Simulated assay, not measured.
Amino acid sequence: MTAQPDILCIGSVLWDIIGRTPAHMGAGADVPGRITRLPGGVAMNIAMTLARFGVRPALLTAVGRDPEGDELVAACTRMGLVTRHIYRSDDLPTDRYMAVEGANGLIAAIADAHSLEAAGDKILRPLSDGALGRAGAPWAGPIALDGNLTAGLLADIAHSPLFAAADLRVAPASPGKAERLLPLLAVANATLYVNLEEAGLLGHRRFATAPEAAAALVDRGAARVLVTDGGRTTADGSREGIVTADPPAVLVTRVTGAGDTFMAAHIVAETRGEDRATALRSALDAAAQYVSGDIGS
């Protein structure tokens, strides 16, 4: 019998095409730099970080049966990720994400995750067909879920008995998709990971700090929410109260994937049995190492 994975990562798995330069950039800038292509996507970034910590993640996503998809699945397999549950589409291309980063942070990005959206609930079949769960015996372990799924599918997940026994950890793919998570805000077994801008979109108002945002989202019904704010104070809010910590001061060399690294490291820390304050510091340390370039992509 094949061993079950330790955690499910549901969402975007695609090719990241990232242009980086040490120069400050504005609209219309044309500067020298480096362009890389690496496996990426929110679910993929989380899974890669989990694998670095010795956790065995399985991917539930959509990948095309094109050469790019074959190459992507092979790369995932080499990293130790479980790929046998991936939905492989004959007529949908493999998704891509393109971003430009300068010394002043993320300049612009475009996520082409249309194939994942078009695949819909096909990516969730292993949770109901007995491979990873079924009606009456749902998956009872941790799940990392990202907001690249459609709003309708995320709303279905919020009420689905197939997710009712899971430790559900949820992240928006971007501020533009943050409001897709509103149906999951009050789910009792869900922990949301958002940045300050995304928290404002979920709370329908601007927040000055992460602790303020975390407290407001808990007041709106969130069981638990972690709010990051770049290099400023991060907050872990729940009905038990607000825990805060400051990120280490580091030289930032990249930003794409930092939030995913934070989320994955936090899941691992709590799996190790760390309390809320210790887990928060562990996750911030891991994210700082990532953005400084001390951890490879």
Rank of each mutant, 00 (worst) to 15 (best):
P211V: 01
L145W: 02
I123F: 06
L184K: 11
G136C: 11
L196H: 06
I157T: 02
V194Y: 04
A166C: 01
G130S: 07
A173W: 04
E197C: 11
I143Y: 06
T209N: 07
D229H: 15
P172S: 10
L201Y: 06
L168K: 07
A215Y: 05
L124S: 02
A210K: 13
A222D: 10
S160A: 13
H159N: 14
A210V: 01
R205V: 00
S128R: 12
P138E: 12
E117W: 07
G147I: 02
K122S: 08
D167K: 12
L132K: 06
A109N: 09
G230M: 11
L184M: 11
E117I: 10
A188E: 14
G141A: 06
A213R: 06
V194C: 11
A144H: 01
V218G: 04
A222P: 01
N148G: 08
A190N: 06
A190F: 03
A166V: 00
D167P: 00
A173R: 09
A222C: 07
A111K: 09
S174G: 02
P211A: 07
N189K: 03
G200W: 07
A158C: 04
E179G: 10
R205E: 11
S128H: 05
D112P: 01
V170S: 03
L168W: 09
G176S: 10
D121R: 14
R206V: 00
L181C: 09
L132P: 00
V187H: 06
Y193E: 04
L149P: 01
L182C: 02
V187M: 13
R220D: 13
D219Y: 03
G136E: 08
A137P: 00
L201R: 15
R125F: 03
L116A: 12
L226E: 07
R232I: 00
A188Q: 14
A178Q: 10
S160P: 00
G141W: 08
L184N: 09
G176V: 04
V194E: 11
L181W: 05
K122V: 00
P211W: 10
L181D: 10
L124N: 03
K177T: 09
L192G: 01
V170F: 08
A140T: 01
P161L: 14
E117L: 14
N148P: 00
G231R: 15
V194K: 08
E179H: 13
V194F: 08
I123S: 02
V225M: 09
I143W: 08
